[in-house]
């Protein structure tokens, strides 16, 4: 039988974990999205060295487990004078890790815009930054919503590893509940349900945004 009493008792702890997960993921997504866009622009930069650096960043991030990056930041950070609490490390780690994936999504978005449109823009005198802002990004947004939502969902699920560096997020708190009650079914059932709700909410928002940015 499922002990609903226990779930009720630990409800506040789980909800606090959920709030932390939402906060961490929201901030990390913001970083991932913004820095991912910058990276995507750098991947198409005119200077070879800039392109190469951006490409190196993306490849290294994609080729490294998120846990290793978090360990490096959290345990290795202090030897480089970077002393941060667990949660900021989690936000930065997830954010800069996610940026590599978002960069690839954006790059694909940029490349899907026919070069003819950009040539037409150049011929009417639009400068590069206008072309990016007025021609490329608006069209790209429509294309990148589904893969971005997907990436956002992956980010939420990966945020569970932050429990290992002691961030009091959803997974960490459910483990605490399991340790204190010696129950396994209730904590993990509750946590699965909460993750599922969170991810459903993201998918739903994604579909809503998609309807809004699509036209014609």
């Amino acid at each position: 039988m499922i002990d609903t009493d226990m779930i009720a008792r630990y409800g506040p702890l789980l909800l606090a974990g959920l709030v932390t997960t939402v906060r961490v993921c929201a901030l990390a997504s913001l970083i991932a999205f913004a820095f991912g866009l910058v990276l995507a622009l750098l991947l198409g930069a005119r200077l070879m060295i800039v392109r190469a650096m951006a490409r190196l960043y993306v490849e290294v991030m994609r080729g490294t487990p998120i846990l290793v990056i978090l360990f490096l930041l959290y345990y290795g950070g202090p030897s480089f004078g970077l002393v941060l609490d667990a949660e900021p490390v989690g936000v930065l780690g997830l954010g800069f890790y996610g940026a590599a994936y978002f960069a690839e999504i954006f790059r694909a978005g940029f490349e899907s815009i026919p070069t003819g449109q950009i040539e037409a823009a150049r011929m009417v005198g639009l400068r590069r930054r206008h072309i990016v802002r007025r021609i490329q990004i608006p069209q790209m947004l429509g294309l990148i919503v589904p893969p971005s939502v997907n990436q956002g969902i992956i980010l939420v699920k990966e945020s569970a590893v932050l429990s290992i560096i002691t961030v009091a997020e959803l997974t960490k708190n459910s483990m605490q509940m399991a340790n204190e009650t010696f129950a396994v079914v209730e904590p993990f059932l509750a946590v699965a349900l909460l993750y599922w709700l969170l991810i459903e909410a993201i998918s739903w928002s994604g579909r809503w945004i998609e309807r809004r940015v699509r036209h014609v």
């Binding site: 026919p114 003819g116 449109q117 040539e119 037409a120 823009a121 021609i135 608006p138 069209q139």
Partner: peptide, 15 residues
Amino acid sequence: ACLGMVFQHFNLWPH
């Protein structure tokens, strides 16, 4: 600036 160009495939901005 004094040149205008028209392409085979129009190259309008669809958005």
